[in-house]
Amino acid sequence: MSQSTSVEKISNKNSHKYNFVDKFKRSGLKPNPLTVETLQVNVTKLCNQTCVHCHVDASPKRKEQLNIDGVNRCIEILKEHPSIKNLDLTGGAPELNPHFDYFVEEAKKLGVHVMVRHNLTVTLDGNPVTGEEKTYLPDFFAEHKVEVISSLPYYQEYFTDKQRGKGVFEKSIESIKMLNSRGFGNGNSELMLNFVYNPAGAYLPPSQEQLEIDFKKELHNKYGITFNKLFAITNIPINRFRTQLLKIGAYEEYMEKLVNAFNPAAAEGIMCRNLISVDHDGKIYDCDFNQQMMNMEVEVDGEPLTIFNFNMEKALKRKIRFGPHCFGCTAGAGSSCGGTISE
């Protein structure tokens, strides 16, 4: 039996044990959507990095990307629904989608708050396929007042490079300094620079508040770096991280840890109740994690919901698709794209 087959069998055998909907309902909560405040769009799976915990399995080899029709349709949705306040661009490295700049510019014209999940190193590495330079990004982000949200797993090289690849920490520091020099993370509320921490292995994140104090102190003292907020997020046991857990025999232990740490307050604020997530084909999901899994598309009245048949009424009456991985969002202080949910 191949290793991957045995890994799948172990995983499938145990998936029924972790019934998220049951746990959610037992807490007296109703797992329904509340609003759509954020349109999160995964514009490309192409990335200049190949991180060990990437739930998207992004890498320089991936080719999927949202085309111009998809981008224009998202812009129309934002125009038609002023209640959607935020556009959250993610990937891969979202800046590698050829329509990224246009997408940001058009959304800003509508007064939408734009966030980009920026991996920092793309600024210096450029496009791994075409070689196109991306050193203009800090100026572009500043000009359009984009909220920059960057993964920085730790304030030291060891944990960062372990997850994101050799040399990533040093390059990230250089890129952060470029953002700081454009005014990001320096107290200007229009130029927000936030970092994302996630654990280097199969354990829960520490207190976000305490960790932010450490990050600020260490990064300032060692590198003169400043930033706004730290978002501490939990590793979600899907794709590369799940495979790693299964390989080291820690999947069940990790799942039990997540289940035992279920926090109803975090469950109430779970992010899928306030956002929708769009993939490179325009299909709609409840979150970026569901988007990376098989058969987790949103369906309403038996039809898949996409950006091409989108309407708000349908989006709000959808049934959120849950799975065992959702325990990652409700463990301890909770976890979302904006960090801790309840602390």
Partner: peptide
């Protein structure tokens, strides 16, 4: 080891 990591300590 787990408790140290979950309270923000690092291997160093």
């Amino acid at each position: 080891t787990t408790q140290c990591l979950e309270s923000g300590a690092d291997p160093e």
